[in-house]
């Protein structure tokens, strides 16, 4: 089935984003490339405080934005206040990898929940990550994070 009219054009300008949150105090959901071990998460991450129907990224008006784990060199690490020790590392493990279907753990310092889904457009199995929760994604969602919805749950 052709869906070319809805597919971003090949000539689109491509940008990369790891921060869809813009919070000064880290009031964000962090999706991490690496897993949590002994309460500790150290790796590159993707930050957000909004819903994403597709973790691939988004395309609009000739501009394509791909979501990645943090890959900006020279920036400070971002330390979460929740959990034992959770750090989003600028050049950490997984830096530069695409977000979709590649997250292993999660930490939610947003003040509301984020539901992580197996498929795009919030389809299939989903698990709500409540405020201040952190940990490894369920086996089914690990490397299978396709979309996420921010919600008051």
């Amino acid at each position: 089935m052709a869906i070319s009219s809805a597919t971003p054009a090949a000539a689109d300008r491509i940008e990369y984003s790891w921060d869809e949150c813009g919070s000064n105090v880290g009031a964000c959901l962090g999706l991490f490339y690496g897993g949590k071990k002994n309460g500790v998460i150290y790796s590159a991450c993707f930050l957000t405080n909004r819903s994403h129907p597709d973790h691939w990224g988004r395309a609009e008006h000739g501009r394509t934005t791909r979501y990645q784990f943090r890959n900006q060199p020279g920036h400070d690490n971002i330390r979460f206040r929740i959990g034992v020790d959770i750090r989003c590392q600028a050049d950490g493990w997984g830096s530069g990898n695409e977000l979709k279907n590649a997250a292993a753990s999660v930490a939610n310092q947003d003040w509301v929940a984020h539901d992580i889904f197996f498929n795009s457009y919030y389809e299939g199995f989903g698990r709500a990550i409540g405020q201040d929760e952190s940990g490894n994604l369920h086996e089914i969602l690990r490397n299978n994070n396709a979309s996420s919805r921010r919600e008051d749950r």
Partner: peptide, 29 residues
């Protein structure tokens, strides 16, 4: 009907323009 999908989950896969979900084409699918 002219669509090539093995499962319903394949429909929403792949790069989509912002607002694709509510487009006439998406509604038809």
């Amino acid at each position: 009907r002219g669509y090539d999908y093995r499962t319903p989950f394949e429909i929403t896969q792949g790069p989509k323009e912002e607002g694709w979900g509510g487009s006439p084409e998406a509604k038809k699918t």
